[in-house]
Amino acid sequence: MIDRRAMLVGSLAALASGAAAQTPPPVARPGRPLVFAEPDETIDLWDPGPPEMAAAALVETVRERSTDPAYNDRIVLGISQPRMAVFRPARPNGAAVLIMPGGGYSWVVVDKEGYEMARLLAAQGITAFVLFYRLPGEGWALAGPNVALADAQRAMRLIRHRTGRYGLDRSKVCAIGFSAGGHVCADLLTRFATQVYPPDDAIDALSARPDAAAPLYPVISMSAPHAHAGSRRNLLGDNASPALERAHSPHLNVPADAPPCFLLHAEDDASVPVANTLLLHAALRARGIPAEMHLFPDGGHGFGLRLARGKSVEHWPGLFLAWGRYRGLWP
């Protein structure tokens, strides 16, 4: 394992030459056109890199799953430089949302639960940050199962650090996550104050607590019978102890100062049982945390925006935006 300080030596030459570009966002494969424009910019969470290097060198890989020319559906894995893709509205209203796409901790979805949501928010005046977080099964021994949470905490702090640049209000920074990204979101809203990486600079003195959070069709429980097997295996390994399962089941770790939440699930979800959302809702209520929950009879899993069309869950974005207005997050 190589400490991040060892990376400084290799970075000095680039800094001396004036190279300050951030790591670009994942791109479509050669020959595959982009249906929509890429994000305005990216922000690396750490410079020159995260607090540790992976045990083996990672090659960031982007795969396009869509064969329909009407949309892109990319996934990315092998992330060694965690970063945010920024979607800036024409007229920012001061609100920010950190988006954590899903992927079962096997990869991070780019378009379906990332960029598509970011474009919707930007159209509402909300500055959107799509988080490409590191995956726990790719050799991050120091952080282990906390590696995605470490990236989410750092991302929240970095957004608050840059509020002046983006015209944001530090008290209006929300988090939203889908599926396994919903687990990252729920982990963040329950363990925002848990130190999971060594403080690096003044940015890490800022709060990582989201002012509101929306885990959508989230992975929550890490124990049978409700755990999503793939996410549990990728996060905790095959032989996780009950104590480790408990430590990474957000509904068992809700603090008294958790933020208000918006919860959403389709009851016919065959991948992540709706019981996950019910468990989190009950835990939030037991702590007196405001939580608005919406359950729909159909929608399946991973519907995001595009795949919700024509189903009972289709109008969830309007409910989410109305909730944000009610909570005073945006006009």
Rank of each mutant, 00 (worst) to 15 (best):
R309T: 06
A55W: 05
A150F: 13
T42Y: 10
P242H: 08
P69K: 02
P259F: 10
F132S: 05
A150Q: 09
D269P: 02
A21E: 15
A28T: 15
T42P: 13
P33F: 07
D200V: 15
F132K: 01
H228I: 12
Y133R: 01
E245A: 13
V62S: 06
V184F: 07
A258N: 09
V313K: 00
D211C: 08
D298R: 00
V108K: 02
L206A: 01
Q22L: 07
Y217D: 02
V184L: 07
V196H: 12
G288H: 12
D200Y: 10
G328K: 06
G125T: 09
D47I: 11
G182P: 01
G288N: 12
M7T: 11
P92W: 08
P92F: 09
R325Y: 05
P242E: 14
H281L: 14
A143G: 00
G125D: 09
S66F: 02
A14M: 11
P48C: 07
A37W: 04
L158Q: 08
Q124F: 00
A240E: 10
G137Y: 01
M1L: 12
H315Q: 14
P26I: 04
G102C: 02
G114N: 00
L216P: 06
L244D: 15
L321T: 09
A247H: 03
I2V: 11
R233M: 12
G299I: 05
R29L: 15
P218G: 08
L120T: 03
I2T: 14
H228V: 11
A20E: 12
G102Y: 04
F178A: 02
L45F: 11
G139E: 13
P198T: 09
L284I: 08
S106D: 14
Y326L: 11
D44Y: 10
A118E: 06
L188C: 05
P273Q: 01
P39D: 07
L58P: 01
A96P: 05
A14W: 13
I289Q: 00
D151I: 07
I75F: 00
T42V: 11
S106T: 14
Q153F: 03
N146F: 10
A212Y: 02
L12P: 13
G103C: 12
L142I: 06
T67K: 10
E60I: 02
G318P: 03
P273A: 07
A95F: 12
T42E: 10
L284H: 08
Q81K: 08
R83K: 10
N276D: 11
N239C: 10
G94S: 11
P69C: 04
A291N: 07
